[in-house]
Amino acid sequence: MSVMVAVSDSPEGAVALAAGVAEADQLDTDLIIVNLSLTEVDTSLVPATLNFKIVDRKGRDDRDPADAVLDEIRDHAVDRLVIGIKRRSPVGKAFLGSISQRLLLDSPVPVVAVKLGMRDA
């Protein structure tokens, strides 16, 4: 089994990655990092002792980040999804949709949602 963390190109993404590492540590499982950004994900803070793999978005099928994460959950034995969330303006939501909202509602496994400035995050 493993923990999956969705890491976006934002401060919330970094917080989610840290929380994902903590979660995998606690459950003593592997970590699957789904890189939602369009560049490389920074894993310098992931401890060397943790077994992790990175999955990048690739191709038109992964254009929607939420679909990309849900597909990966289907393809792997995942028992927890970790995401970073933030408040979105109604306008931003209308134009770009909310990835977090879709993951919270559509994920087939329990979701841990972390925010910036949380205790222990």
Partner: peptide, 8 residues
């Protein structure tokens, strides 16, 4: 790969 969502 990228699309509307990446404009955030």
């Amino acid at each position: 790969t990228g699309g509307w969502a990446d404009l955030s």
